[in-house]
Design a protein around this nucleic acid. Structure first.
Lengths: 240, 240
DNA sequence: CGACAGTTTGAAAAAATTCAACGGAAGTGG
DNA sequence: CCACTTCCGTTGAATTTTTTCAAACTGTCG
């Protein structure tokens, strides 16, 4: 789903890349050339959109970070993703009248608001944009499948390890440190995302810390031995 | 992801529908008018495509049923979906060189093979096709999110109940009985899909049977009290 | 400073998995 | 067509993992 640096996965498919990679920034340029873009700033804790709100726009996250949460009528909810620069939000609402989920800023963030009908129009005129949007949707599907694989096959601690590696990787792609970063979300959010309880996540993090694989203090993480983390998470070492 | 009868979810979002519903069959017609379609028959147990195979085509399932499976390099695997008439397969490969997952027929099935470049070309000429494809991708994303919600918030038995209701619902949309149908997949496949073991699925089915909510004999299911099943699965009663 | 949301940890309980055994159905090969 | 094998499903019991409940601790924000 990341327009600026696709693709990234928790596992497996990282190698099979697009034949014709598009320059990410070029696409961003193209977007601005072909349609009006409204910049929107959202403060930490505020909603980008809420469940049920009429759907008009998708959002390109330009700075900050955002979580998305799926809500059931009976009150159950589930974090469905954590997003950073370059990620596209609200695409799950395409084809519906309203957003089926909500998006909340995890820190002060800025987004480009892209009204969906102009996007469609632009896609018709600019094949590259269409390809890009479609590819972004497909990547989002792969990301989900990869998550399903993790949840279905890994233990609690393995999931937490995989989660940290995923965050690290996405951080790295955006030019930030792959070793050290801030967990912008609460333990309970991680827990929901990983289909665990917040206590279990806390224990897993503590245990990874005691084992010397990571250092964690509150929201600051350092991956001390990402090789071991990868082994733990069941992935073959990534060579590149 | 179902081209013939979107959308369907395990939960929540079923009400927020597309403003301009497109006639499903009309889209199928349009497809045939605008590009060459190769019909392919696959026998039960055979692959539609395999992980790593070069990606050229997506598939529209016309008859039968298919399961898709995500594979990790270390041997872990995970069923990511069960598909029936009208469902679009292989879209996860868009933007990649090869399929990241594999699709296996659960019974003798027939599919339309749609080479992807003509699909793209057709989408550029026919806005309706583009909308349809994009909407199908978006629906697939929602389906995944809905699955995440179920896995993250429901117990084993609730997941099995939700699974049966989902199958029943999709069956119903295609004009088959919503009350009685055949589970084409093995217990182990259901288990993988629901992030459980096959023993747990077996026990859950037996227990639902003993409780009088369903009748199950091997692969034949009858939903005796789908209202109670819905309550069990945590959903509000669907009114219509 | 004080309240509070969020985190950590421990102990008990519950849920699901693992291991093991059995039975039946389907498929294979004589 | 039958014997045999293999795969799949079911069930029970033991074990493991994760959750639940409870309490204490910490950093942040009025």
């Amino acid at each position: 789903m990341n327009i600026l640096a696709m693709p990234s996965f928790v596992s497996s498919t990282a190698k099979r890349r697009s034949p014709a990679r598009l320059q990410p920034e070029a696409v961003v340029e193209a977007l601005k050339r072909h349609m009006h873009v409204n910049e929107r700033r959202v403060r930490s804790g505020q909603h980008v959109y809420q469940s049920g709100q009429p759907f008009h726009s998708i959002y390109l996250l330009r700075a900050g970070s955002v979580k998305t949460c799926e809500l059931a009528e009976d009150g159950r909810d589930q974090i469905t993703g954590f997003w950073m620069r370059g990620d596209l939000l609200g695409v799950g609402a395409i084809g519906l009248n309203g957003y089926p989920s909500e998006a909340t800023a995890l820190e002060d963030s800025t987004l480009w608001q892209l009204q969906y009908s102009p996007v469609l129009a632009a896609c018709l005129r600019v094949p590259e944009l269409q390809m890009r949007l479609t590819a972004a949707l497909a990547e989002s599907i792969r990301r989900n499948r990869s998550w399903m694989l993790s949840i279905g096959t890994l233990s609690a601690e393995q999931r937490v390890a995989a989660f940290l590696l995923d965050l690290a990787h996405r951080h790295g792609r955006l030019g930030f440190s792959q070793r050290q970063f801030t967990l912008r979300m609460r333990r309970a959010d991680i827990a929901s995302f990983l289909a665990l309880t917040h206590e279990t996540v806390s224990r897993a993090l503590s245990h990874l810390g005691r084992s010397g694989l990571i250092e964690i203090r509150r929201h600051e993480v350092t991956l001390l031995d990402s090789e071991a983390l990868r082994r733990l998470a069941g992935a073959r070492p990534v060579l590149h």
